[in-house]
Amino acid sequence: MALLEVKNLEVKFGLRTGEVTALRDISFTLDRGQRLGIVGESGAGKSVAAFSILNLISRPGYISGGEILFDGKDLAKLSTKEMRYIRGNRISMIFQDPMMTLNPVLTVGDQMVECLQAHTKINREEARRISLEKLKLVQIPSPEKRLDQYPHELSGGMKQRIIIAIALLLNPDIIIADEPTTALDVTIQAEIMDLLLELCTSQNLGLILITHDLGVVSQVTEQAIVMYAGRIIEQGPTKEIINDAQHPYTQGLINALPQQGIPGERLNQIRGSMPPLHRIPQGCAFHPRCDYADAICEKELPGFTQSGGCQAACHLVAGRIALKAKAEETH
């Protein structure tokens, strides 16, 4: 059994205007040493998924179905105290906004010591020693000096390294990183991604990397999930998804990238935009934007079809695979 197994996770938000479903039918597994990417456009549900895994989703949001099995235990059913233990010691999170982790009025060293002492019985000296060791692990320049600095004295790239060091403090099994480099420049982003990749290997960490950047997913992860309007629409080995996407939305996303276009010519755009949660259309949520949409797409929610190593939620893919199977049968 995998270390983390998310099964049919469903999350709802109870809004004044009625209930909306932010996530449905999210399933995947992750073990130590594996790297999983979650991609999708803004509002697709990537952050809600990350927060839910850690049971950090708060009112008006709640987990309305499914299981999050970690070491066989359902995290959705744990007490606050048990969950706090998991969050500190077993699964760490790196947030989209660095200031969600860093306290502006404490030095880096004090925050790290505080974090260690909150989770383990340990004296100050020992805690500082471990903190320094982790700062070295994330290859920050002059680590001793950083312990006594405040967050505002550090550049964006250094802040992100410190956040990674904090995430590593208690030697977790899994790190969930939500857009860890969105606010950073390309050269710094490349360094941070390189660091995450290296840490996953050297520390045997499981990584869930959330991003809207397919380039980043393709360089860092082995497995990928593509989300649209709160659902997984395609998942499988990253290489296969990038080189041979099955779902029309994944294909559209890849083809819309400037690096896939012919310089100076129009890009292959996807028309329209992703609907908000309270206006998700019937049937396949992508159908108003899809070039292949059929009558069935407007009515019936497509289930997953296996194609190669990937699974895609699309009637077209299902039809194609069925045809292929039939052809093979008659041969």
């Binding site: 996303l253 819309a256 400037p258 890009l267 996807i270």
Partner: peptide, 14 residues
């Protein structure tokens, strides 16, 4: 977003 970036770039090119 990526899918929207392509729309706007196309518009500027047109």
């Amino acid at each position: 977003d990526v899918s929207i970036q392509a729309q706007v770039l196309n518009l500027l090119m047109d």
